[in-house]
Structures are given as C-alpha cells and as structure tokens.
Design a protein around this nucleic acid. Sequence first.
DNA 1: ATACATACC
DNA 2: GACTGGTATGTAT
Length: 484
Amino acid sequence: MESLSVDEQQAASSSSTSPSAPDTRPTSISPQKRRRVEDSTNAAPHASLLKRMGGPSAGKAGLALDQAEINRRIYEASKGSKYFENERRNDERITRKVEAMLARMDERLRAVPEGGPEWLAIEKKADALASKLESTRDLSRHIVHCDMDQFYGAVELKRDPSLKGKAFGVGKGVLVTASYEARAYGCRSGMATYIAEALCPHLITVPNDMQAYVAASQDVMSIFRRFDSNLAQASLDEAYLDVTDHCRINGVGVDDTIAELRRQVREETGLTVSVGVAPNTMLAKIGSDKNKPDGQFRLEATASDCIDFMHALPVRKVPGVGRVTERILQALGVETCGDIWRLRVRIALVLGDGDLEWLLRYNLGIASSIVEPGKREERKSVGREHTFQPTNDPERLLELLRESADRVAEDLKKLDFVGKRVTLTCKAADFQRFTRDQTQTGYVSQADDIFRITRTLLEHELKIQPGLSLRLIGARVSTLKDVR
DNA sequence: ATACATACC
DNA sequence: GACTGGTATGTAT
C-alpha cells in the first residue's frame, strides 16, 4: 500500500511562519540514565562507530577507495586518541538510546497489535495529518538553492592555479574543505589534517584565508541579487532565491534564468555554482546536490513529482537529519523518505505525533516556500571560543577566558547588541564539552562584565573539579537587545 | 532558568 | 600524538 490517499489538490499559499531555510527535524528520544559500560578498547569496532569515525560528511560518491576501506583507515589512524575515545563514548550513548527506543517499541507494539482497532485509529489519524499537510502544499513559486562548488578550494585555485588537478585541502589542524581529487581518497571537510594525510599521502594543505572567502562571497551574492534582491543568504557559499517574479517580469523561463545566473557567476568570478529549483526550500536544497558540480536541476512543480522525488531519498539527505537522527530512524526501519509512509503508525507509536508530522513532510516533500533575508533583530547570540594546548593552570585559563571575553565584547560593540545571558563554554582535555551560564538582571556588553561573570563560573568549576584540564574556552552572550 | 544535544557550513 | 569555530534550536529538568 504505497500510494497516498492524499488529495492532489493544492494552491492555498503557505500561511506558515516557518523560516526560509528548512531547519526543523524530528526530535530525538530522551537520554537514558543507565551507567556507562566499561572500556571495550580491544573489542572489534561497532559498525556504527566505524561509520561515525568516517565523519559527518562521509558517504559521498566518486571515491578512489571503497567507503568501507576509508572508514577502516580512518579508524586505524585515529584509534587511541582522546578524540577517538570521546567519539566512542558518544557512539555508545547513542547506541543505548537506540536500544531503549527499540525496547519501548516492542512494548508499544505488544500493546497495540498491528491491524487492531487502536492501530487502525492511529493510521487514520496519520492519514488525516497527511491530508492536512497536503492542503498546505504551495507549488506556485520557483524556489532556488544556489550552492557554490567546493567554494574555499575554488577561491584558492583561483589564487594558485598550480593546484589544479591536485589533491589539496584547505585548513590547518582540521580541513575546512577538500578538493574533488582529495575527496576521491576520502578526505573530507571537518577531518583532521593528519587523518587526511594518512588517506592521501600526497595531499597538499593550504592555510585558510577567511578574508578572501568573504570577499568572493560578496561578489557572488551581488550577482545572485540581480535575480532576487530579497535573497536569503544561508552561509558564505549558499543562498536561497525566489526567482518567480524575475522570470515573469522578464518573460524568461526558469531553466534559462538559472543558466544565465550560472553563466554570469562563471564569467564574472571564475567560480562555478550548482543550482536546484523546486517549489520549496527543502526540495531546492536537495536538488542543488543532484548535478554537482557546475550543474542545475529542476523539479517539476506537481505534488506527485515532489512525492516521487522524496521516495527513494535516504532520510540522511534531508536538511536537518544528522547522523544521530539517521541512526534512530534506521533502527525503526526508516532508510528512505518513502519508508516513512509505510511505517507511519510505528513512527507515531514510538516517536509521537510531533515527529510524525515532520517526517510526513519529508515523505510528501512539503516545506516552506518563503524566502526572506535573515533579519538583524533575529540574531540570538554572539560568542567566541578557541582551542589551545590543554592546560590545567588556572592563571593561564583565566588569561584565555579574558581573550574570549574581549572578543565577544568587540563583536557586540561592532554589532550594537547588548545581552542578558552570559555563557561559559568549556571543552575538557578529554573532549567532553560543558557550558555554564547565568542570566543577569540587567543588560551587559562590556568586556570586564563578560569576563567577571564567566570567570566566576569558571572558578566555581575549578573548585568542584580540581585539576580540571581544558582544551577550549569560550564566552557567549545571548538574550540580546538591539541598541542600534 | 540552566544544561546539554543535535545540526549546519 | 594529532580532530575547528559560530550560531540556532530542541529537549529535559
């Protein structure tokens, strides 16, 4: 029973107040408070850990080595490091969470036998929810997601053409991007450089130059703005546009419009961009990946095209579904967005109605069709953090905290914000992170105030955890007020 | 109000 | 031996 009993009708412009970028995800189940199992360093690696060590962006196509072999090499290279141990702990925690969820599923499935009256009632409710969602589908806009190809790497290539055709990465301790040649060896953004070098011994690494990327980004965004002056910039190298009006006013089809946008970017900046066009932001974003690099993809604006497009799509490809959510869904039997429909009753039983709603949106390919620039007053926090050689010297830690506090105050001043809540962020030498915060009675923005508050929080931690060694310290101010 | 987890680039 | 930084948001308590 794969076909949807949902009306194919639509129109009704989305009245949703959701933000322009797809950003919501099913919530995860509550953490369990069971005791951590003891060291199992010598045991064979759990499949999920092997995969986890492959990194969050592992699993893309075009590899010189088999992904399983890459994961094995990454595992070998990182085994025993503090980072690795922390990943192992986190992986165990998720494994326990998934086990607890499966136990709960067994229990619920016993209480609500498949095909029984209660089961059928839940199914009916899920179908009604799907119909309701279907009635909000907006197919009237040409929503565009532009994603620059290998952006930092492309900027570096422009600067140093001798890198062309070579395996190189940008970044120092950690790669922020890898060239397509390096990706073929399994090198990925977010990967430690020493791991990348283990996978690809001839890897060239170049330091990153944010200034250059910001400048290139501004050039590209100003070209995008010719097609939608109201675009939503999602990052330095990504933007959402609504080109419906541009196409109508100029009497140009959307495919030609996008070809023209790509041509202007290529000619004026020497960079290439991949583009997805679809009726909403989620579909456009997934689409921009379809013909990468230097390609464009358009999804036909009909409900059945949207549903078919999502059907075979692995849930992990949906923006907002990360590796933890992927594991939870996998345990339920949900690998693709098509599986969501088949397993809707199980999902409702185990995860609840709220999560079912988001998952049904993925299944149906329904999301916001509203593109608007991020508003300044929507800024939620301003923070700084940095990593250093682990130390337990309290004087040194306070010095480092002072630096973060100074930089946050600088940023707040530049941005004209003051805030009420002050957060201390720490990462211990073993990579475990924690935060401590305090809400003030009045607004703060001065370096001295931010330092004084975070220092008190840090000193308290040092008192209750004597000898605490840290590798990262940061300060953040939130609950902001605009004073511009 | 606080702490922490997840996600994105 | 070695694995970033900045921001948003959801959940639990």
